[in-house]
Simulated assay, not measured.
Amino acid sequence: MDLFSTQPDQDINLLPHDGTVNYYGTLMTVAKANEYLKALLETIDWKNDEAIIFGKLIITKRKVAWYGDIPFKYTYSNTTKQALPWTKELIELKKIAEDKTGETYNSCLLNLYHDGNEGMAWHSDAEKDLKKNGAIASLSFGAERKFAFKHKTTKETITRVLQNGSLLVMKDQTQSHWLHRLPPTKLITKPRVNLTFRAIVVGS
């Protein structure tokens, strides 16, 4: 089921049940989105992501960064990151996401995919540090990539192409009932930067 549309209705829930996903489309001009992409590539403290799987350390080609209001510690894939202080561009983008969604975020996990060969396997963002059923605002810059959801029980799938400078929001019970992924593709040769603004529960 492909729900891609050039003029998305942000009030439409892309999921048929068990969660809420809204796609707002592009929030800025292509020129402005490319300006943010350049700044993010140059100013973010990118590191290769690490995961410990079956006791073995895996280092990915994909790079990540973790920023927040305070030095939050965030653990996933059996590794822990400590948040860096916001950059000027991240503060601007956080405000855009908050104004558009009516939510409040205190942290951001960023991913850098150098080309279509790099993706993300099926997973859900349900770490104990995150606000239960809280909103995750996903801003995309650079190459347009297909993003997919799969229901954990029914296995039904939904896809959406995420545009340069666009916003997608996952909230309510989405992480409990749905997996999501960024499928790899040999058709994409340009980089994509994805920002996922989140709410970490202080003291978790």
Rank of each mutant, 00 (worst) to 15 (best):
F4S: 15
I12F: 13
N13H: 09
L14C: 14
H17G: 02
T20S: 12
T20P: 03
V21R: 02
L27N: 03
T29F: 11
V30E: 15
A31Q: 14
E35K: 14
E35D: 15
A39G: 06
L41S: 14
E42V: 03
W46S: 02
A51P: 00
F54S: 09
F54A: 10
I59N: 07
R62T: 06
K63A: 13
V64L: 11
A65I: 01
G68I: 03
D69A: 09
I70F: 03
T75E: 12
S77V: 04
T79E: 06
Q82I: 08
A83R: 04
W86Y: 08
K88S: 10
L93T: 07
K94I: 03
I96R: 02
E98I: 12
D99F: 07
T101Q: 06
G102H: 04
N106K: 09
L110E: 06
L110W: 00
N111V: 10
N117I: 15
H123K: 09
L130D: 06
L130K: 15
K132W: 08
N133D: 13
N133R: 08
A137P: 06
G142T: 12
E144F: 13
A148V: 13
H151T: 01
T154E: 04
E156H: 06
E156I: 10
L162W: 02
Q163K: 06
D172G: 02
D172M: 01
Q173I: 11
Q175D: 09
L179H: 14
P183W: 12
P183V: 14
K186M: 14
K186I: 15
L187F: 06
T189F: 11
T189Y: 13
R192F: 13
T196M: 08
V202A: 04
S204E: 09
